[in-house]
């Protein structure tokens, strides 16, 4: 019994015991015996256990003083707002609208691969040939990370750039908006790549490719922060 035998291996009297047990199950709540696991159906005992647990958590929340409730909500709001303001702070510091980006395509292999995390800097406006920049195509909001292969202007004239993916056969004129044959450094470029962490960004690729993961994660985080008192 202890080593969880298959039913066919049981001796007759144990079958009898099992039958009595199964008739019992129809009339009263089934509780698994210790040392014996069942292989059919969900573990109702465990399920109801969690339910009871969450309801007591919610009732604990509702029994809080109004001020305590306000403090609890504030805790949660501060977690979110601090994360957002840190991001914005980094934006201000680097002067870039999105200072950290994730590589989504293989057009810059072998320099960058899918899932690499890139750190951008947008304060050096005098971009040189060979630098890797992230830019937005006009009219589309898709950031692209490619290398500068040619520059025009500079100095008093506005700097203009032509880019190309290391792994692509041709330069980016095809990718640019209709009628555009170069990038304007000031307007189009989000920042130059100053550092990268390989592979870490794969999490965000997963999150964007499976949106329900995002919802699940957010919901879970919200629940834990609201329901746990520090």
């Amino acid at each position: 019994m202890k080593s969880n035998p298959k039913w066919s291996e049981l001796r007759p009297e144990q079958h009898l015991a099992f039958n009595a047990y199964s008739t019992l199950r129809t009339t009263q709540v089934y509780t698994p015996r210790p040392g014996r696991t069942t292989q059919h159906g969900p573990d109702y005992n465990r399920l109801s256990g969690t339910l009871v647990n969450t309801t007591t958590m919610f009732s604990a929340l509702s029994s809080l003083q109004p001020r305590q409730l306000a403090a609890q909500v504030l805790n949660f709001a501060l977690v979110l707002s601090t994360a957002f303001m840190l991001w914005k702070g980094l934006s201000v510091f680097t002067a870039s609208s999105s200072p950290i980006v994730v590589v989504l395509s293989g057009s810059m292999e072998p320099a960058f691969e899918r899932g690499d995390l890139l750190f951008l800097w947008n304060r050096g406006m005098n971009t040189q040939v060979g630098e890797i920049v992230v830019y937005n195509v006009r009219g589309k909001d898709i950031p692209i990370v490619h290398r500068v292969i040619r520059r025009f202007g500079g100095g008093d004239a506005p700097l203009q750039l032509l880019t190309k993916g290391d792994n692509n056969a041709a330069d980016d004129t095809e990718l640019y908006a209709r009628g555009q044959s170069y990038l304007e450094r000031e307007k189009d470029v989000v920042g130059s790549v100053v550092g990268f962490v390989p592979f870490v960004g794969y999490v965000t690729i997963l999150l964007s490719e499976y949106p329900w993961l995002k919802t699940a994660m957010l919901g879970f985080m919200a629940l834990t922060v609201v329901l746990q008192r520090e």
């Binding site: 001020r67 306000a70 403090a71 504030l74 709001a77 501060l78 707002s81 601090t82 957002f84 303001m85």
Partner: peptide, 13 residues
């Protein structure tokens, strides 16, 4: 503390 915290949250919002 609540006032300071909520003002901060409002600014972020």
């Amino acid at each position: 503390r609540l006032a300071v915290g909520y003002v901060a949250v409002i600014i972020a919002t």
